[in-house]
């Protein structure tokens, strides 16, 4: 018995179509769940319970399973990130390459603490675990694309992102 009734869909028809596609893309329905939640995270910058409930119904999965996945993986957040989600690796090699200094730079440049969103909603930053770019440390990630080594100049240029 679901104690929260679903009141309408939290998505646009176009978004619903994307999510539906993920239910048939792989040989088994549930295999599309992580990709579907990635889409949700991309659109909403976080996973709302209503969104997860809708996805659960679409995939014919219990809500607690979908919420478990939504809260387990670091790509998914339950609080909104900025439009540009910035990651700074603090793994061993990147730490050796000076990640703490770049973390300070990010905080100063963007004006927000880790995991906080700027007032215009454009940016949030966070320290992340190894991003697989140890030879270009301290590695910088923007919306899941590696940007090479974080430098004061590169960080300053982030503000140009729309």
């Amino acid at each position: 018995m679901n104690s929260t009734p679903l009141v309408g869909s939290p998505f646009t028809p176009a978004q619903e179509a994307v999510l539906k596609k993920w239910t048939t893309f792989y040989p088994h329905k549930e295999m599309g769940l992580v990709e579907a939640l990635r889409s949700v995270q991309e659109w909403d910058r976080h996973i709302r319970p209503e969104a997860a409930a809708y996805v659960a119904e679409l995939f014919d999965l219990p809500f607690n399973r979908v919420w478990g996945v939504a809260t387990f993986f670091p790509s998914f957040t339950t609080k909104p990130t900025g439009k540009h989600r910035i990651g700074l690796c603090h793994g061993l090699s990147c730490w050796l390459a000076g990640s703490p200094l770049m973390a300070k730079r990010l905080q100063e440049t963007l004006g927000v603490a880790e995991r906080e969103v700027t007032k215009d909603g454009r940016f949030s930053w966070e320290e992340m675990e190894c991003l697989g770019a140890c030879e270009q440390g301290p590695a910088l990630l923007v919306n899941d694309r590696l940007q090479g080594a974080a430098t004061p100049e590169k960080i300053a240029k982030l503000k140009d992102l729309e």
Binding site: M1, G68, F72, F73
Partner: peptide
């Protein structure tokens, strides 16, 4: 099979 509880977060 009522799925009220779960372990959430990692």
């Amino acid at each position: 099979k009522t799925h009220e509880l779960g372990i959430f977060s990692r």
